[in-house]
Nucleic acid binder design. Sequence first.
DNA 1: TCAATCCGTATC
DNA 2: ATACGGATTGAC
Length: 672
Amino acid sequence: MTGLAAEPTAMPVARVAVDVPLPHLDRLFDYLVPPPMAHDAVPGCRVRVRFAGRRVAGYLVERASASDHDGNLAPLDRVVSPEAVLTPEIAGLARAVADRYGGTLADVLRLAIPPRRAAAEAAETALAAKAARAPVPPGGAGTAAGDQWAEYRAGAAFLGALAEGRAPRAVWSALPGPQWPAQIAGAVAAAARSGRGAVVVVPDARDLNLVHTEIAAAIGAEAVVSLSAELGATERYRRWLAVLHGQVRVVAGTRSAMFAPVAGLGLVVLWDDGDDLHAEPRAPYPHARDVLLLRAHRCGAAVLVGGFAQTAECAQLLATGWARPLAAERRTVRRHAPLISTAEQDTALARDPAARMARMPRLALRTAREALAAGPVLFQVPRTGYLAAVACRRCGARRTCQTCGGPVAQAGRDEPLACRWCGSAAEGGCAEPGCGATGIRALATGARRTAEELSRAFPGVPVRTSAAAHVLAEVPGTPAVVIATPGAEPLTPDGYAAAVLLDGWALLGRASLQASQEALRRWMNAAALVRPGREGGRVVIHLDAAPAAVQALIRWDPALHASRELAERQHLRLPPAVRMAALTGDEEAIRELLAAAALPGGADVLGPVAGPAWHEPDGGAALPVEPVLFLVRVPLPEGTALAIALRSALAERTARKDSRPVRLRLDPAALI
DNA sequence: TCAATCCGTATC
DNA sequence: ATACGGATTGAC
């Protein structure tokens, strides 16, 4: 008990973070606590207050004995609930995240704290009262954790440090295969043994299931909770409250679980940090990697971040010595990895009717045919739909959308041509002057067409497709052709007998400087589902062996590729080697903003170029007719100063009611 | 001299 | 956003 309940009048002032979107109002406002509310108005609770004449929601951040505000204080309108949903740790973290990204506390809190569900709150509060009498013992049960890490050079040291309550930080190069969820569970169990909690963040629901199952097996099902957006709002809030109340101290979840209010946090885990699902699409667009590292740094927790592939960001953590590598010896890696070979498009396709029909290298087909005797074979296809890009049959010009310029595609065999970006129908023929022909030819095939072709190449073999809207979590271990887009690969009990990575050039050739790293990540994630080479596991990639990403795949050396990637980013002065702010919107407004902002020394303004350079998740309704993009680049230590300078310049704009659109985003991955 | 209106600015 | 204060305008 605090002295608050006993002496309510001692702290008559409530300092409130109001939930308004304007950056110049991003600070605490003082209110008087009416005596009847004194007991419920605890730090962290939700309140409603009168603010500029209307009622707004807010969080009571702290109680104080007096106010600095000269002028009358308004009373709190209402304490919505005495539940202290904003813990001091999350309040501090949210402030730091807002500062890092040039956003507002209110925006971050909207990401961090789920909307209230009164019913769930009532039920969970009653439960908490009961649990207080019989606290859940810290995770104990479970198998002898630790052996999952025996194959990693520093594995035992990492687990030992965790179990002793220390805070080791590791960049993890996971061995290919299905062991990684059990390894995460082993680390979580070690942290739990030291009496601490853990937060585990994975990209999607499939990975969450795997990890949750393993953690439950290691520390007991009652000691871990899974949080994801797929839960209903009520169930999500119920589980979140169980975490807040300290009934459960291990959370596994997708992106938004990074803010889960775990008591006594001792470990943060981030799996596959290169997956773009870890980038929050809502303002201020924080990335789970940044948030978790910041969080661990602030509360002295251990860090385990990694995956099969490695990002330039992780390479930088290693280069600066902030984290240590957690990897296996090369011979161990070789023992787990499938045998990987490359196959260029054969010139003599005509000699093999099946290869011609499936338009793929004979080596790929032969490998698949042989492997099908031993189990399922995975085909990774970078695109969904039937034809992902088409060209005019007569003049050869690529068909693009008449409305927005996006790529024209065909979703299914007999479906009409439509734009992949805006969805408008691509009626009529070729738009090239003087052409107008309606005939098309395929430029890039999608998963559905590949499925069609493969079922002809392998008559009698079941063909399953897993893509966008139809993701299969798992397929049986019996022979089958499994076609999947990157990230949608189903699991299979004993691993795939082989994988064929098609259209590698499509992944490598994307107009992003991250293309190489992202291609390698997708290939490794698929190849990791294949049996080890000594058990016959084979991977064929449809590319020549020259590109660095292909070399890294063949040698299963993600760390070398990531450190080269980092060196290149350093050379080009791109994140994570520098901090970059992207401003999109009205050109004049941005020029004025940049002139007014107190940019830190060494700031480097680039632009304008035509923007927006990435797709806005909200459809870009507020964008002007001709948006432009400016970039501001600063050395890493000036990152927060840059974000704060730009935010105050934005704040002055909104205070002046300048309505011209300007949007700020820090280190946008899509730009790199 | 006072009220109605406009504009700028703070919002506790 | 709304609300308030100070300045401005217009009529008596």
